[in-house]
Design a protein around this nucleic acid. Sequence first.
DNA 1: TTTTCCCAATTGAACGTTCATTCGGTAGGC
DNA 2: GCCTACCGAATGAACGTTCAATTGGGAAAA
Lengths: 192, 192
Amino acid sequence: MSQEEILAEKKKAIFESTLELVRENGFHGTPMSLVAKKAGVAAGTIYHYFDSKDTLIIALHGYLRSRMFKTMLDGDDETRDFESRFFTFWKKHYHFYVQNPNALYFIEQFVNSPYYERCPEKENDRCQNIIAQFLKTGIETGVLKQMNLKLMSILVHSSVVTTAKVSLTKKVEIGETELQQVAQVIWDGIKQ
Amino acid sequence: MSQEEILAEKKKAIFESTLELVRENGFHGTPMSLVAKKAGVAAGTIYHYFDSKDTLIIALHGYLRSRMFKTMLDGDDETRDFESRFFTFWKKHYHFYVQNPNALYFIEQFVNSPYYERCPEKENDRCQNIIAQFLKTGIETGVLKQMNLKLMSILVHSSVVTTAKVSLTKKVEIGETELQQVAQVIWDGIKQ
DNA sequence: TTTTCCCAATTGAACGTTCATTCGGTAGGC
DNA sequence: GCCTACCGAATGAACGTTCAATTGGGAAAA
């Protein structure tokens, strides 16, 4: 095993530990000592990889972003018609969040906190960009309404996030029927 | 001025102070000493009204809820047709959030934090209930799609919140046109 | 091949600070 | 004289961060 892989492993352990603890206890309820313990490293080790707690949290956010990015890209069959591509797309995003609840809650906490202000990638939300790029073709080909692209992307994205949160908190049982219904609502809303 | 009103004034000052500081610095970046200073009271005084910092924050959340509740109820003209009532309703909600950004950000931080788990009013979200009650008549009269009421309410509510956040962060300039557009997307999505 | 040396990785106890909370005391209305 | 509202310095625990010490693997020297 190479030096680099070991390095990556420790870093990853710290990330995973932080992710879980922040989800459970929030930013302020997550002491570095606990992060260290859960990650199986010494407290000082964290500071070998990150300058401070804030840096760690901002880095974790970036790490989650890129993981999400990778997951969300593949599996799009461009030969199919735009409508069914939209539904597949929407549901895939939904499932990603449901399968990664820790990431969802961390990110939601993060973007609503003052951390987000200081976040370098704030402007270039790649996750939003993936959606935007997809919707763009829909608008250009006249399948979707003429509308500010960014605005439409955010609306679609927020519907996914909202539905995932509803599902995870079990406020409403989300089966295949409900999933289809919600996606349909958004589709009917944006289609020309 | 009655005893009660004086009491209300100090309490309110503490609430407002907390609200502003939490919005700016997050929960963990808001020490009680600062809350006290900004509210113009002694640190100990806060503990005359609240058992702990957590209690204060949960109480503030309840306080904001009831203020929102009051604001959002009035101004509905039941004689008009359902569609235009929906648009007025949607926009009124939007404007409330835009005019109370501190409340919006506080609540968004709150509901995504572990505080929310321990929140007694978690189940009975009155704000969601107002929306639900309104949409209910729409579903019953066949103007809206047949769909889980709670789910529809949450979707509508989240679209309002999302749009307000977009507007406040100026990611997209939200004028009357854009506002109408977004409301239209949601309306087209839920209408029968 | 063996020995030496170096440096990055790692440790965890110790430090200094920050912060929530406490508490003894004052003021004033009833 | 009692009770409620209020004060703010003092307290002690918790926490982020530091640092002197240790390890181990690999490169350079022998």
